[in-house]
Amino acid sequence: MKNWRISFTRQGAKSKIYLILVLLVLSAALLSICLGAVWIEPKAVLRVLLGRDRSSVQANIILLTRLPRTCGCLLAGMALAVSGAVIQSVLSNPLAAPNIIGVNSGAGMAVIICTAIAPTAVTAMPFAAFAGALFAVLTVLAIAEKTGASKMTLVLSGVAVTSIFSAVTDAVITFVPEALNGYSDFRIGGFANLTFAKLGPAFWVILAALLLVLSLSNELDVLMLGRETAQSLGLRTKPLRLILLALAAALAGAAVSFSGMLGFVGLIVPHIMRKIVGENSLELVCSCALGGAALVTFCDLLARVLFAPYELPVGIVLSLLGGPFFIVLLLRQRKGRIP
């Protein structure tokens, strides 16, 4: 009985962590809507969100500019962080993340090709991004399966895959210069000029993929025990790995389709959450979703206020945070502190 009591105490601590994460997300979202060229009172924001004010200037600013942007931040952060957590778990590699192993650049390449072929097909973007991301993730998986790749080999193959996708992207831009419109913003990643029309299709893809990942959390737990143990417990590891990586690609691809190639969210958030809540997949996925949403929204806020009235693309802030984080992880791995 003593053990169960301890268990409840730890459960209590985890509830507090979730509460803090929810509060972080809510405060980030509220600040993201209130802050900008014009400060809007939280009360006014609530009035607009509750539908009591639809015609004032403030309502227009919120509904047409700030709300889509905030929703985009929350959605992209959520999707990229969960995608990173899934990829790291499936590949048993703490250094794997959508941008490190080339998933983001695969999605970016597909988006550029889609823009070159059908510039007005906004609804097709998330699906094209998904296809590109899936292609990238399957390429990396094939390398891992073929070579029994070590953690570092996987990262290096990600570098190679990324450079191939970048070359294809550059080639498309060379032949179809119109596809370049907005590409530099897309490459860095940002949420300026985001609309609900652009966000809509990605929202449904992310929602569906997130629910499927949650429904497979127990399988993911067993998969993390290692291939041999998982198979001996009756798990069909090969199809499951493919399904989970396809879901991770859908999450990252859909996010990239409207946010551009945001880096490091899928690396930073899962790492921090693993330390805080452990590796129980259900808890890890939920905390990553909340943590990712909060991180990207706060970074976007930072990007907006740091050099106001000028605005930095949020991708720059995330890279400035994520780059050093990645270097620290590499150094820790060299010291053998990352298994």
Partner: peptide
């Protein structure tokens, strides 16, 4: 198995995986 991953979960949770 001879080679196993050791995820950062509590031992009871690990044992419960045997019920999978």
């Amino acid at each position: 198995a001879q080679k196993r991953n050791t995820p950062n979960i509590i031992a009871r949770r690990m044992v419960l995986h045997g019920r999978f």
